[in-house]
Simulated assay, not measured.
Amino acid sequence: MSITSFLKVIGRGSKGAGDLDRTQAKDVFTAILDGNVSDLELGAFCIAMRIKGESVSELMGFMDALQPHLNLLNLGTRPTIILPSYNGARKQANLTPLLAGMLSSYGFVVLVQGVEKDETRVTSYEIFKSLGWPILKTKDEFGALLALNLPIFCPLNVISPALQRLLDVRERIGLRNTGHVLAKLINPTLQNPWQVSNYTHPEYPEKLREFFQLRSANAILMRGSEGEPTASLQRLPEMHFLFQNGNEVTKLEQRFDDPNPFFDIDSIPTASVTQKILSGQVRCPSSILRQADQISTMAGLH
């Protein structure tokens, strides 16, 4: 399938480009996920969307196209938190596994979904491996992993091989693309859990708010730390709790001055300190403790 007609809409630069409507966005993304688009057109699509930015109608249509390509997991009735982990640690320790462990200790099912490797960063997947925590290898083993009562890492390659292939385009063109935006928005379950959605660029909060409201989802919007869905050691950013019934509650930013227990950001040292914090041997950073408490309170478990 040729997507030339769509490229003519989105490919006219930051000022001249138009937005696709939801049906058009679904059509073009279906063709991409099905592998029916040439490499040249796929590269043009990725660059055009990178320059233009995704509209809400496009995000909705892209997600419509993605739904049949998701291997959805059945949670049952247990309250669940979804943490997307697509960046990892570069300058500061990756605190996503620690937040996941804290929330799990409060009684939540916690799914961390993301990529397994990044050549320049320490991923949550690598920390999970060092911790010996469960990592989903196939959809069929999910029920057995739930019984372990530990956070579960769900690789994107298991949740959606088609979307993983789109993320892998980054290795050829050197830039992230729309696939990375969508990956962070995935709900990999058959239920409606709480999804943490972190952003970096200031134009995204309003788009994400509208996106989750249109999907009647429970979501927590926040500015991430190095692209991860956590507070940093020094700061818990403002968090917006969006309820599926349309209500919204905002928790204001807080700052902290705790000592840093993470002096080495590699996976094995990070896993070691994470385990010591969860076992009570080392004090949990105030920012992560406060984030976990706020999420637990708003989601009804603590």
Rank of each mutant, 00 (worst) to 15 (best):
L70M: 14
G53E: 04
S14E: 12
L59Y: 00
G53D: 09
S55A: 14
G35L: 02
M49C: 04
L33W: 07
G43P: 00
F29I: 12
E58T: 03
A25K: 04
I32P: 05
A31T: 01
R22M: 15
A44R: 13
L66C: 07
K26F: 06
S38C: 09
K15Q: 07
D64I: 13
D21K: 01
E54C: 15
V28K: 04
K26V: 07
A65M: 09
H69S: 06
R22F: 05
D21N: 15
C46E: 04
L59R: 06
G16Q: 09
L59G: 10
K26P: 03
A25I: 04
M49R: 13
L66M: 10
E41M: 00
D34T: 05
G35M: 09
S55Y: 04
M49I: 10
K52G: 09
L20I: 12
A65W: 12
M49Q: 13
S14Y: 12
G61R: 02
T30M: 07
S55M: 06
Q67T: 13
D34P: 02
K15G: 03
A31C: 06
L33G: 05
S57W: 02
A44T: 11
S55K: 04
A25R: 04
L40P: 00
L33M: 11
I47K: 08
Q24W: 02
L40Y: 11
M63N: 11
T30N: 13
A44F: 00
E58S: 12
F62L: 08
F45P: 05
V56W: 01
L20G: 11
E54W: 01
A65P: 09
A65N: 05
N36P: 04
M49V: 11
G53Q: 06
I51F: 03
M60D: 15
P68N: 14
L59I: 05
G43H: 03
L42N: 08
Q67N: 12
T23M: 11
